[in-house]
């Protein structure tokens, strides 16, 4: 089964906001040899009782099914949704990108940032920090371009995702 082609899936996991829950989820992935491309977690309820964990993983479809089943049987997990199978959904990622340089490179960096709707959130006489958000592809592309004009370092959030339309998953 592991020889089938790998697919990228975005999973949304609602869990009790309790100590150790993240360790349970992450530990399950490492213990069973599943991949994590990115992972985000934050409290998403009024009473701070529930967190949403968004995991981007990849594997052949039977492995993705196993991941879903394994997550679903953890006691503190409320709900697991494979957004990739679910249907239309929005995926966004945010990155902070630091570039340094002077002269034409500095001007070009600002120009490219404008095209990508990246905002400078910190400026010094020879550097910028840009905030860019969008799909992972867009963020990747922006970072690639910034390499040409003095990329220093990058911090990324990983993917957050939500289903389109009026319904909650």
């Amino acid at each position: 089964m592991k020889h089938l082609p790998s697919e990228r899936h975005t999973l949304s996991i609602l869990v009790d906001n309790e100590a150790g829950v993240l360790a349970r989820i992450v530990g399950l992935f490492s213990a069973r040899g599943y991949n994590i491309e990115s992972l985000t977690v934050a409290d998403v309820s009024d009473d701070h009782a529930v967190s949403r964990i968004t995991v981007v993983t990849n594997g052949p479809p039977p492995v993705i099914d196993q991941i879903m089943a394994q997550l679903d049987r953890l006691v503190p997990v409320h709900r697991v949704v494979d957004l990739t199978d679910w249907g239309p959904h929005v995926e966004r990622e945010m990155a902070l990108v630091k570039v340094a340089g002077a002269g034409e490179k500095r001007v070009e960096a600002l120009r490219l940032a404008d095209i990508f709707r990246a905002r400078p959130v910190d400026t010094s006489i020879n550097s910028f920090v840009f905030e860019v958000s969008g799909s992972s592809e867009k963020v990747n592309q922006f970072i690639t371009l910034m390499r040409e004009v003095g990329l220093v370092e990058v911090a990324r959030t990983g993917v957050v995702a939500i289903a389109r339309g009026a319904e909650a998953v």
Partner: peptide, 11 residues
């Protein structure tokens, strides 16, 4: 009774 037992090794 455990969904994760399904299709784990044998389809």
């Amino acid at each position: 009774i455990d969904r994760s037992s399904f299709n784990k090794t044998v389809r």
